[in-house]
């Protein structure tokens, strides 16, 4: 089946109030073209699931799309804190559940295995158990140990950016896979964006690098530079100059409005044109 669609087609599949898991990690391989399409849509009250979050969470909070966020981390590493996330946390304008890297993975894994929870020692002794009511402690039935029960996380939709895909929805990830396969398996519907769409017979030559199976995928978008301004190894590195521009804008109301007009409320072609030619982008970001 040909599953090639556009970013806007993917957004049309996401309802108000949907639970959306977003792949990638930190400033690596975030599906930013899809996230920008969501940011300029009329969707609201989304519930986000991320592991090591950053620009995707901050942009969607900064465009009032988010009712709740489940996260292990939201920030920009050595570049600083996430301005909209920080404001929303401090003002209480969005609901937040602080999880951890493994527990987000375990929650998705529980959904995949159709069990209500998975047990772990993770979180014992920390204040997460006090502030995150999703976690409960339980007695193990064999030895009586106290463990944390991590509830299943069942996304309605997963959004993932891959290096290469075919029109059937198989996806090749050439760098770190992060938790993307878990997102794809746990979600009711998974959508990929890809740097390039290849013919299926060519994609199959990538062997073990085919990490996302077409049986999990509902739609695939061809989006060159679709992870920008995060990186997409081995194609391009994170655009930290743009991160600085983003962070400066997100800290200032007027500048934020200008940023959205310039980079978000525009087509992907215009987004790339505003950043300079593809040749200039390549010179700055290809490694």
């Amino acid at each position: 089946m040909n599953k090639v669609v556009s970013c806007d087609d993917v957004v049309a599949e996401i309802r108000d109030g949907a639970t959306v898991a977003i792949g990638g990690s930190s400033l690596s391989r975030k599906p930013m073209a899809l996230v920008r399409a969501l940011a300029r849509s009329g969707r609201k009250n989304l519930r986000l699931i991320v592991n090591v979050g950053g620009p995707e969470v901050d942009l969607l909070i900064g465009t009032d799309k988010v009712a709740e966020a489940i996260y292990a981390f939201v920030g920009f590493e050595v570049m600083g804190l996430a301005p909209h996330f920080r404001r929303a946390r401090q003002e209480g304008s969005v609901r937040f559940q602080e999880w951890t890297e493994f527990t987000v993975m375990a929650g998705l894994d529980a959904a995949i295995k159709r069990v209500p929870f998975l047990p772990t020692h993770t979180g014992l002794g920390t204040d997460l158990l006090r502030v995150n009511s999703a976690f409960r402690t339980i007695q193990d039935p064999f030895e009586g140990q106290t463990l944390v029960a991590v509830p299943a996380l069942r996304p309605d939709v997963a959004l993932i950016h891959v290096n290469l895909a075919d029109s059937q929805g198989n996806g090749v990830i050439l760098g770190d896979g992060h938790m993307d396969v878990l997102c794809a398996k746990a979600a009711r519907k998974t959508f990929l964006s890809a740097e390039q769409i290849l013919l299926p017979e060519r994609l199959q030559t990538y062997g073990r690098d085919v990490r996302i199976l077409r049986t999990l995928v509902s739609g695939v978008v061809e989006a060159p530079w679709g992870a920008h301004f995060t990186g997409c190894a081995p194609d391009y590195r994170a655009d930290l100059t743009h991160v600085q521009e983003y962070l400066a804008a997100a800290r200032d109301r007027a500048a934020w409005h200008d940023y959205l007009e310039r980079y978000v409320y525009v087509s992907d072609q215009d987004y790339l044109r505003t950043l300079g030619s593809e040749r200039m982008l390549g010179e700055r970001l290809r490694v």
Binding site: V52, Y71, A72, F73, V74, G75, L81, A82, F85, R86, R89, Q90, G92, E98, T100, E101, F102, T103, T120, H121, T122, G123, L124, G125, T126, D127, L128, R130, V131
Partner: peptide, 26 residues
């Protein structure tokens, strides 16, 4: 690494506990 002030009403929201709870239980 999560917050300065109370978690529910942060003075400064930092980044979230990331993978530290995994380390400090194992």
């Amino acid at each position: 690494i999560s917050v300065i002030g109370p978690w529910d009403h942060p003075k400064v929201a930092l980044v979230g506990s990331r993978g530290i709870p995994e380390d400090t239980s194992h």
